[in-house]
């Protein structure tokens, strides 16, 4: 169908329209929805030995610290968590991202890989003693697995345990946008200990279920 106007106007390329679309596109890029993960999200790369967990170069052991479990019983870490391989993670129950992602990935991968909590201890130590009551820790861990051991204690004891592992202590980083108090910065890695209590490998945030499925059977087999 031909335009009522002149042929010249019909044939004119829609430069203005394209420019307008380009500007709108650029604005959409700059002011549009964005990914929530700040990392490339492709998981850990396998090392030359096939492990996904990163080997620790300096010798470290299960910290000599005594904390409380959710029943109120004292737990001496270096005694309780030798004899079986252990995965140790420091976090807090109000954590919006890394803590629940790590714990969900480990619990899910253990089920998929057929690794039993009888053969591997998974320990969560709270870095937020003010908010993390025993009940709250119990409820929180029940979202992943009731077999994950939840521990808490005075902040000074937790900081000492972290220091023994050459890790920095927790830091209050500002208000949680969800209105749940403060966000707390803390080390994001899971540390793996063999049955003798030697720290051998670490899994930073970015480890996916597939990474855990590759490493968990080896942990049980080679570290027990």
């Amino acid at each position: 169908m031909s335009s009522p106007r002149s042929d010249r106007s019909t044939q004119r390329p829609p430069v203005r329209t394209l420019a307008l679309l380009l500007v709108a596109g650029l604005l959409a890029v700059a002011c549009g929805p964005a990914s929530a993960t700040a990392i490339a999200a492709q998981g850990l790369e396998p090392g030359p030995d096939g492990w996904r967990g990163i080997p620790l170069e300096r010798e470290r052991t299960v910290p000599e610290a005594t904390l409380l479990d959710t029943q109120g019983d004292a737990v001496a870490l270096h005694e309780a968590f030798t004899g079986t391989p252990t995965l140790l993670f420091f976090g807090y129950t109000s954590c919006p991202d890394i803590c629940p992602i790590h714990l969900a990935a480990i619990a899910s991968a253990m089920g998929t890989a057929g690794v039993s909590f009888d053969d591997l201890d998974v320990v969560f130590v709270s870095v937020d003693p003010d908010r993390d009551t025993p009940e709250r820790i119990d409820d929180y861990l029940a979202n992943f697995s009731r077999r994950i051991v939840g521990l808490h204690g005075d902040l000074a004891v937790v900081e000492d345990a972290l220091a023994q592992l050459d890790l920095p202590g927790p830091v209050v980083e500002g208000a949680d946008p969800r209105g749940e108090g403060d966000l707390i910065g803390h080390p994001a890695q899971v540390i793996g200990f063999d049955a003798d209590g030697q720290a051998l490998r670490t899994w930073p945030f970015g480890a996916r279920r597939s990474d855990w499925i590759a490493d968990l059977p080896r942990i049980v087999e080679e570290w027990s």
Partner: peptide, 21 residues
Amino acid sequence: NVAWWCSSTPGQIWTWRYTPF
């Protein structure tokens, strides 16, 4: 590309607060 420190900066915490694009 991994994270060693859990802080409010690496990810965007989901909230139900309206954010116009």
